[in-house]
Design a protein around this nucleic acid. Structure first.
Length: 566
RNA sequence: CGGGGCGUGGCGCAGUCCGGUUAGCGUGCCUGGUUUGGGACCAGGAAGUCGGAGGUUCGAAUCCUCUCGCCCCGACCA
């Protein structure tokens, strides 16, 4: 392509709006322009890369037996009502205003299940892997970081249909392996974490993550053994509080100036792990009292998983007094004003010698024995892992890092097939719900993560196969540069004929402008045609990544390019 | 939804607190000329409802009220 005829609007200056490198580079190199909050237009150069990414996705999905669909973005709302997701999605789902009963699809489990219900009748019709690359619409409350969180974005979403749980396991593993190949081929450094299924429902899920300060997820990673988990589900090697031998009857003592765990530790010289911190949540309108060890943080995602609902919130001060009889800082397991559900973190399982609130402002109990003195309805893993704790697999120190979620795979099970009545007959002639999996990759996020990982102070550094062009040809003009122009045009045709995509900067610009734009756009190989080298029958080859330059004879250019891309 | 910031030629910004000729600067763009190995130079030129509406005033980019949009932090997030 001739740059003089192409729309590649590079920018020297940037608005301060763009904060992260990938966003800045996308704008500066002319890959993308913003239309509105969380809504972007892909420009020709950027779209070439997007198409390249989609091609890789197709190849790897086809390789595991996937069949490509194109499902509509405009969906009948009744399907979504049948699975309860109109309510579950809430404001995230876009509703069409002037046509009753239509919504914009935020994902496609319902539509896939609808088509499965139409035609999958026998166990012999499965397994199936159905996928598509398509726009998703989500009314994000706050879009941010360029294309990383948008209101409209491209997703490769895939769904597996199986007649057995073993079949689901096989398809899940196939996707896991395919995803690793995809991200490897895109030259991304990533890691896989165990994750929460959230409101998608389902039994098991894993996320494919890229470590980045721009990320919105928090993950726990062990650099020694490779353990990695989303903070929502992460655990560490932490010893439970356990029992002490001498625990006299519980006893009230005044604590007028202690409202926090730290106050108690400071004022009464108490060991942190013998303190039972109480937290009250309102879960589906009912109070639940939760005990945590000392200053351990309660993890709301874990709490949601344990209680099987995402309808929960911390209790308001008035509610605390109403249910417990005390305010924050004095709530405990004994003498609660009303009887309600009480659970505790595994760290406190069967523990004694504990200190907790007396449900009377300004007083605590000591020598509490959870087994002897209280009714605890259940012990669960509810604590949030912190950096520096030991890995439960190998004992090494854990790191806590921010990460961008590139992909997510779920074992859905039968949630959608049951809700929509997508059943099949098994070998015994018995009707069963189809067993499903769901697998998603954010297409633009691949590009954004790539840019986060591959750039320098001059711009983007593309690596095969994501580059928009193989070769950037830079004839350095000038008035008496007819020879340069002729030679460059010849090389341009030769490179094209050799099967490479080449961009020629035939604009009437000074060398500095061309060099800077070329480094910014970041095509892997630059071929520079200048008068001095040409007089000796040479041209110069520059590798963008290393900056290495080399003058080589004109007639060896094609071989050089072939060698680079072999 | 709460908190903060911003909106002025295509792009990036100053001017706003303290109202007063013709609203500036950089860059880009157009014409002519000189230049051509790391964002060239000279001369001339086009281009702005100062986000929008209403108000105060002799007079508003500037003050007041309302409103729309964008960015950041938090809440939320399949």
């Amino acid at each position: 392509m001739r740059q003089s005829e192409n729309f590649i609007p590079t920018l020297k200056e940037l608005a301060s709006d763009a904060q992260i490198p990938s966003h800045q580079l996308m704008l500066r190199a002319g890959l993308v322009r913003q239309l509105a909050g969380g809504i972007f237009s892909w420009l020709p150069l950027g779209y070439r890369v997007i198409k390249q990414i989609i091609e890789i996705l197709r190849e790897e999905m086809d390789a595991i037996g996937g069949q490509e669909f194109l499902l509509p973005a405009l969906n009948p709302i009744d399907l979504w009502e049948q699975t309860g997701r109109v309510e579950a999605m809430g404001d995230v789902m876009f509703h069409i205003k002037n046509r009753e009963g239509l919504v914009l699809a935020p994902t496609h489990e319902e539509i896939i299940t609808f088509h499965a219900r139409q035609h999958i009748r026998s166990y012999r019709d499965m397994p199936q892997i159905w996928y598509q690359v398509q726009n998703k619409f989500r009314n994000e409350p706050r879009p941010k970081s360029g294309v990383l969180r948008g209101r409209q974005f491209l997703m490769k979403d895939a769904y597996s249909l199986d007649n057995s749980w073993e079949g689901l396991d096989v398809n899940y593993m196939k996707h896991c392996e395919a995803y690793k190949k995809i991200f490897d081929r895109c030259n991304l450094k990533f890691f896989v974490v165990g994750a929460s299924s959230g409101s998608m429902g389902g039994k098991q899920s894993q996320e494919f993550m890229v470590e980045s300060d721009a990320g919105e997820d928090v993950c726990v990673v062990c650099d020694n053994c490779g353990y990695a988990a989303n903070l929502e589900v992460a655990s560490s090697k932490t010893e439970p509080v356990g029992r002490i031998t001498d625990c006299p009857p519980f006893e009230e003592f005044p604590t007028p100036n202690a409202r926090t765990i730290d106050d108690l530790i400071e004022q009464f010289n108490l060991p942190e792990d013998r303190l039972a911190k109480s937290v009250v949540y309102i879960v589906n309108s009912e109070p639940v009292l939760i005990f945590m060890r000392g200053n351990d943080g309660l993890n709301e995602s874990k709490l949601e998983a344990v209680l099987g609902t995402n309808n929960l919130r911390p209790a308001e001060p008035e509610e605390l007094a109403k249910f417990t009889g005390a305010n924050t800082g004095s709530i405990g397991p004994i003498n609660l004003k009303t009887r309600f559900k009480v659970i505790a973190d595994n760290m406190l399982k069967g523990a004694n010698g504990l200190v907790s609130g007396a449900n009377k402002d300004g007083f605590h109990f000591k020598n509490i024995d959870f087994e002897r003195d209280c009714t605890i309805d259940g012990y669960y893993d509810l604590r949030t892992v912190s950096a520096g704790e030991s890995c439960s697999d190998c004992g090494s120190k854990l790191r806590v890092v921010s990460a961008i979620e590139l992909g997510h795979i779920f074992k859905l099970g039968t949630k959608y097939s049951v809700a929509l009545g997508a059943n099949f007959l098994d070998a015994e002639g018995k009707e069963n719900p189809i067993i499903m999996g769901s697998y998603g990759i954010g297409v633009e996020r691949i590009l954004a993560c790539y840019l986060e990982q591959h750039h320098d102070e001059h711009g983007i550094i593309w690596k095969s196969p994501l580059m928009p062009y193989h070769v950037h040809l830079l004839p350095l003009g000038g008035k008496n540069a007819e020879a340069v122009k002729a030679a460059a045009d010849k090389i341009y045709e030769d490179i094209k004929n050799a099967g490479f995509d080449v961009l020629i900067d035939d604009r009437d610009e000074t060398p500095g402008v061309k060099f800077n734009d070329a480094d910014l756009i970041g095509i892997p190989v630059q071929i520079i045609v200048g008068k001095k080298n040409l007089d000796n029958g040479n041209i110069e080859v520059k590798v963008r990544e290393t900056g290495a330059r080399e003058a080589i004879p004109l007639d060896t250019v094609i071989d050089k390019i072939k060698e680079f891309y072999k």
